[in-house]
């Protein structure tokens, strides 16, 4: 066990865990931030996507010991009023079915729009193909990302 000081959603947090513990479980088990989901544990499905300094990162294979001073953002901290352009667009297009993968989808989409404010269809597909949606909401996700880009660029 070891103590780690983490910066999560703009707040300083301390945990005492095995250094190898993936951030996913630090968030879910130790900090009760359960919006980030477990799907595969091997960075293949994207349900656990968080931001590390604003960049989409799979938290299920990110040991807490390598996080250091880097800032972590989870779905709970994406926007104070849950009104990030991507979240607004998700509601407008009524994207979710079961909803389980959507936090990860939203985090991937928000990261994409940060680095590329006006992505093409191909760029959206490339950035989002690491996130599986078993319910098959891909068409809506893509449309919502385009709407989010418009909201963000307005």
């Amino acid at each position: 066990m070891a103590k780690f000081n983490l910066k999560i959603n703009g707040k300083d947090m301390e945990v005492d865990v095995d250094p190898q513990t993936p951030m996913l479980w630090v968030l879910r088990d130790h900090l009760d931030l359960t919006g980030t989901k477990y799907g595969c544990g091997i960075a293949q499905c994207g349900a656990c996507t968080i931001h590390l300094n604003g960049t989409a990162t799979r938290s299920c294979m990110l040991p807490v010991s390598v996080v250091g001073d880097n800032e972590i953002t989870t779905i709970e901290g994406l926007a104070e009023e849950a009104n990030h352009p991507v979240q607004q667009a998700w509601l407008e297009h009524d994207v979710p079915q079961c909803g389980y993968c959507q936090a990860g989808q939203i985090m991937s989409a928000a990261s994409l729009l940060k680095s590329n404010p006006s992505p093409s269809d191909e760029q959206i597909e490339a950035a989002m193909s690491g996130n599986i949606c078993r319910c098959g909401t891909y068409v809506r996700i893509k449309e919502a990302i385009k709407t989010a880009a418009k909201i963000q660029n307005a």
């Binding site: 009760d32 931030l33 359960t34 919006g35 980030t36 989901k37 477990y38 989870t74 779905i75 709970e76 849950a82 979240q87 998700w90 509601l91 009524d94 979710p96 909803g99 389980y100 959507q102 936090a103 939203i106």
Partner: peptide, 23 residues
């Protein structure tokens, strides 16, 4: 007349909706 998913806002906020989220 189409109505938005009543759980939509909770889903996009990452609220505790699933049994895996129970503590």
């Amino acid at each position: 007349n189409s109505k938005k998913n009543v759980e939509g806002k909770k889903i996009i906020k990452g609220d505790k909706l699933f049994s895996l989220d129970i503590k």
